[in-house]
Design a binder for these strands. Structure first.
Lengths: 155, 155
DNA sequence: TGACATTCATCTCATTTGCAACAGTCGCAT
DNA sequence: ATGCGACTGTTGCAAATGAGATGAATGTCA
């Protein structure tokens, strides 16, 4: 009989939720942003100048979700969104000073949070886990598909 | 500097989405159910008779989400929902024959899907991964909290 | 017993979400 | 240049969602 407890996507989901809980408290309660906004902020911080579409690829979130998250961050003056000069369909996103400050603060909290997880399970195990997760992510979704695979989820 | 790529909750989220993509196609396109409904179905299959509240605890999904998922499955005649005789606030959920049939079918698909992941990364690595995920899940969220941690998430 | 807090599930309502449709832009063959 | 398909990001809309309120059942304790 099939055992739900051994079903890898299920275990991954549960571990994701558990490991995210506290940090979600931080960015929702203290900073008033959503997970999508947090994703966008971090990605702009690391890869700016970057377009919305590139963030969609990196995060595998729906493009409309990214579009609206970007809009809210621009409204909050954490990001600037300028038209790309070479391709005017695209946006170019960058941090404002205020956004950079918020990101620095959140980064620090994320670092603490990550360290507490690593401390909990041990450094070696954490390294192993990250490596395994990268292998899971590398699964080629093009294999044996009937149609295109959609990102994001209803849950 | 903080590295998003090494942030365990982020890697977990990405791996979860990637590993769930194809199977989500199965239960959404072919069976027309949501992730929450799938969770409920499996949990009732494994632990029936079970109440809505117990599923909330097991899945860490929001109680209203579970309530509505149960409602839809009852409407679809995959579940029965009877009042508990000893505590009439509670529900007792069980599969109908039709629900059991759907679950058996979905289980088989889930088994295939899980096996394809295991084949991809290797049996030993899969075992290691599951063990590590269980350790992550076991993180005690009671440590150093200010308020209660909420389950589930936005987005 | 009676008063009152707690628990369970559902429901309400404002907000968020995913999907599809859309407008604007580009690449490229003609 | 022109037509046309592919792409980028936004928006409309129905459906899903989360937080808190509600109603009913139970527990607690004097």
């Amino acid at each position: 009989m099939f055992d739900l407890e051994e079903f890898i996507p299920y275990r991954l989901y549960q571990a994701t939720e558990k490991s995210s809980q506290k940090f979600r408290q931080v960015y929702t309660s203290e900073y008033g942003i959503t997970r999508a906004e947090w994703r966008v902020l971090f990605n702009v911080g690391l890869y700016a100048p970057i377009s919305s579409g590139e963030i969609v690829e990196r995060t595998a979130l729906d493009k409309s979700k990214i579009s609206r998250a970007v809009q809210r961050l621009v409204d909050r003056a954490w990001l600037t969104r300028d038209g790309d000069e070479k391709d005017r369909r695209r946006n170019t996103l960058e941090l404002t000073a205020q956004g950079a400050h918020a990101l620095a603060s959140l980064s620090s909290r994320a670092q603490e949070h990550n360290q507490s997880i690593i401390d909990r399970i041990g450094h070696e195990k954490a390294r192993t886990l990250l490596q395994l997760l990268r292998e899971i992510e590398a699964i080629d979704s093009a294999a044996s598909r009937k149609g295109a695979c959609k990102p994001d989820q209803a849950q």
